[in-house]
Design a protein around this nucleic acid. Structure first.
Lengths: 203, 203
DNA sequence: TGACAGGACTAAGGTCATTAGATTATAAAC
DNA sequence: GTTTATAATCTAATGACCTTAGTCCTGTCA
């Protein structure tokens, strides 16, 4: 049988779906074309008809992760502003990483080559964060600084939690809510300062 | 030649040294026993005399990374307190990750198995952070929450920066200094609240 | 001087990614 | 309805890598 009889053939989306499930289940090490093919009931060379090798597959997963994350963040932020928006954004971010640790982990891998599409997908996520910060009255350089801080905290917290980095008995939930509150405070402070500078004549 | 003539033989430390250099240079993907052996002028099976396979080597590197990081953090924090200590700690943390991205990256890998030694090495790092927080008057649960926040921010910032996650022209340096300042502010706020709760009778 | 232990080697097996070439089912064209 | 083309699958084969088993040499110690 050189081609399946049932009329049904594999599709790129199906491959990426299965790969996403696999990497979340087994981690980055467990993401192999061999195992993926086995799950799809196919031989590994067949995957090359739908995906450009392992590297291409990872790229595909990265794009999907960023796109999904952006979508969820946007849905959480819409209709809210200020502290509400921040809290919703943070919680969704954390939940995403905890639910899709493997997929999210691929996001970070150093982009050796300049990949415009991946970069743009990343920019989409940043855009949502920026929108929330606009609710604090932050613009320009301050907004960029704040975005970096926010992303750093969220990324760091979620990754450390997902990899078991918080080894204590104290509930992680509380730590997270406190972190969000302190972030809110920081953003308010930053916005006030920026406002002060503006009123003083932009110096 | 089944054994080198010069009387000089390989040592575990030499293997780990070379591995650390390799992973910083080529990233986690580039860390292979084959390449490592080549650099050490030896065949790959010979490495098994000094290290327990690739997995054992990674474990060794993880221990070294945590130990080195703890040492550098401790040296930075000693003799300082409060904001000075915090700033020094943060800068050293960031510098460490930027100088040893590959080595540091191994630190995070999910510890599937409960490895007491690795966990203890991680606890050593946490200890230094806790010591700095004590300078803010933070103790108990609050100190743990604060440690989590601090580690999250530092980890997130450094990793995002090291992997090229901050793709803009705005200087990362400024963002970092601002983040440290806002962290300081958050810690002060948290300490004040804790003090207030204590004076109110522990409620 | 002779045994022994440490450390390097060769040989070999297994997993994986990847390429090349053969085969066939579906779909389009006639 | 038959023919042709395309697309997707397969088998076979190569090369990188990790790992184990077993051999051999060198330095040390009794």
């Amino acid at each position: 049988m050189a081609r399946p009889a049932g009329g049904r053939t594999l599709t790129r989306a199906a491959v990426v779906d299965a790969a996403a499930a696999l990497v979340d289940e087994r981690g980055p090490e467990g993401l192999t074309l061999a195992e993926l093919a086995k799950r799809l009931g196919v031989r590994s060379p067949s995957l090359y008809n739908h995906v450009d090798g392992l590297e291409g597959l990872v790229r595909e997963l990265r794009l999907r992760a960023l796109s999904d994350l952006q979508q969820e963040l946007a849905r959480a932020a819409v209709g809210r502003s200020g502290r509400d928006a921040l809290a919703a954004l943070c919680r969704v971010y954390r939940a995403f990483v905890l639910e899709h640790p493997g997929l999210y982990g691929l996001t970070v891998r150093s982009t050796e080559v300049e990949d415009a599409e991946v970069r743009q997908a990343g920019a989409g996520v940043v855009e949502v964060v920026l929108a929330v910060l606009r609710g604090y009255g932050l613009e320009g350089d301050d907004a960029v600084h704040a975005t970096r801080l926010l992303r750093s905290t969220l990324h760091g917290f979620a990754v450390l939690e997902a990899t078991g980095g918080f080894g204590l008995e104290l509930p992680v939930e509380e730590s997270f809510e406190l972190a969000v509150e302190l972030l809110h405070l920081s953003l308010v402070t930053l916005a006030e300062r920026a406002g002060g500078r503006a009123r003083a004549g932009g110096r």
